[in-house]
């Protein structure tokens, strides 16, 4: 009894140590979980960053790694957002087939975990994938389903309304599209979503322009879109706005305004490397100055056009090598 008591403190310490090691072993899986979730969150942030910068290849890699990390710790919410994000990146990369399969997976998962908000996002993204691949009917079904979910949740999304309006415009339902776009514009403006507000304005301008009027209403929409795109600093959309504003001014007979806008479009398009677009503007400028009898300016632009075509040819042949 005395010997037992003498060693009791050692035995107790050993038992404690064993218990501690056992507990640490059991807890190791729980410690690994937040670490991997943190890692996945970092990868998602990097993916979103690359997406925002237009580096869609890098964005796809980061989101795919985040997906693997989230799956390894059964983080369903993270997995779902990664699947939708991958679907969105793949649309921009033009891989619509892969996008559709990722988004179908996202829809199954969202339904399984009853995440209606993301179910709506997944279905809207699937609508965009179908629309981009030229499948208007399936796109219409998916966007309707997404909007129905939003309505049930009491949410309004400018992006989804714009997409629905684009689909309607393609089937010649311009009046319905116009109503939706007005709603999308109002919602995007109140939500500070500049990108979608500008998209709504551009689509409205497209409808007005196609209606065959003098184009003054369309021009106003393009001007507002241009102002928004300037605040975003998006040169691709600025170039689109300038070109459309120039064409509408030319249609209305305001030749000087049109020429000034074509010159600005040429500068913007050349800066971002859209040489074919820049050449189109120069051709318009040549026509304008030839018609106004300013032969000197017209010949200057002819020389500029030739040099641009040469640069474009060099670029194409380098790409083909």
């Amino acid at each position: 009894m005395t010997g037992y008591k003498k060693n009791i403190h050692r035995r107790t310490a050993a038992a404690f140590l064993a218990a501690m090691f056992f507990l640490a072993g059991c807890a190791s899986d729980k410690n690994g979980r937040p670490f991997l979730e943190k890692k996945a969150a970092g990868l998602e942030a990097a993916g979103a960053d690359a997406y925002g910068g237009g580096d869609y290849g890098a964005s796809l890699r980061k989101f795919s790694e985040a997906l693997a990390a989230n799956r390894s710790v059964d983080n369903r919410a993270g997995e779902l957002s990664d699947l939708i994000n991958i679907g969105r990146v793949l649309i921009l990369l033009g891989d619509y087939g892969s996008s559709v399969s990722y988004l179908n997976e996202a829809i199954t998962l969202a339904a399984g975990i009853k995440d209606d908000a993301n179910l709506s996002e997944a279905r809207a993204t699937l609508a965009k994938a179908h629309y981009s691949s030229g499948n208007g009917a399936m796109a219409a079904d998916e966007i309707d389903a997404a909007l129905a979910i939003d309505e049930r949740l009491g949410a309004v999304s400018g992006a989804k309304l714009n997409l629905k309006a684009s689909i309607l415009m393609d089937t010649g339902r311009a009046i319905e599209a116009k109503e939706l776009l007005k709603k999308a514009l109002k919602n995007s403006e109140s939500a500070d979503d500049i990108t979608e507000a500008a998209n709504a304005l551009r689509l409205l301008a497209g409808i007005e322009s196609a209606e065959g009027t003098d184009g003054s209403a369309a021009l106003k929409f393009y001007e507002r879109a241009y102002e928004l795109d300037k605040t975003l600093g998006n040169p691709f959309k600025i170039a689109v706005d300038l070109k459309n504003m120039a064409a509408l001014n030319l249609r209305a007979g305001r030749v000087n305004d049109a020429a000034f806008l074509f010159e600005r479009h040429y500068t913007a398009a050349k800066t971002i490397g859209l040489l074919a677009e820049a050449v189109l503007s120069i051709e318009e400028l040549i026509k304008i100055y030839t018609a106004s009898g300013d032969g000197k300016k017209a010949s200057e632009y002819i020389i500029l056009k030739d040099s641009l075509i040469q640069a474009q040819g060099a670029r194409i042949s380098n790409a083909e090598k």
């Binding site: 957002s81 969105r88 992006a159 998209n199 691709f236």
Partner: peptide, 8 residues
Amino acid sequence: LVPLDGYL
């Protein structure tokens, strides 16, 4: 989620 329209 990243925006549906992928710009900046």
